[in-house]
């Protein structure tokens, strides 16, 4: 289990203990967190699990693959320096991560 915090646009906070072998995207989808769609189910194809990582939480992120980088240019909400696709973030390795949900995913 890894504790992941999802901050909604309204400021509301959902904290989820994500079971092992799940991505930050899947942790959200399995627990009905609105604001993450995950249309392709984690295939790094659709760009609908976009999140803004809270850099103040001090969790080191894995490097970005080319395809994630490409997809982030096409997200529905603007890309920022702290943008990531949550399907590419393995929750197990990111205990304590805080992510902010964007205005829209599609």
């Amino acid at each position: 289990m890894a504790k992941i915090t999802y901050v909604h646009l309204s400021g509301a906070v959902t904290v989820i203990d994500v079971p092992p072998n799940n991505s930050v995207m899947r942790g959200a989808v399995l627990n009905g967190v609105d604001g993450i769609v995950g249309e392709c189910g984690g295939g790094a194809m659709c760009g609908t699990c976009h999140v803004y990582v809270d850099e103040s939480c001090g969790v080191a992120l894995p490097p970005m693959r080319d395809v994630e980088d490409e997809l982030l240019y096409g997200t529905a909400s603007p890309r920022r320096a702290n943008s990531r696709l949550s399907c590419q973030l393995k929750a197990d390795e990111l205990e304590g991560l805080v992510v902010h949900l964007p205005e829209k995913q599609v």
Partner: peptide, 19 residues
């Protein structure tokens, strides 16, 4: 009409050419 239908499949094998 909106995305989220299953016309391109879902999951790992989601249509690579959807967009």
């Amino acid at each position: 009409g909106k995305r989220g239908h299953l016309g391109f499949g879902h999951g790992l094998h989601y249509c690579i050419g959807a967009d």
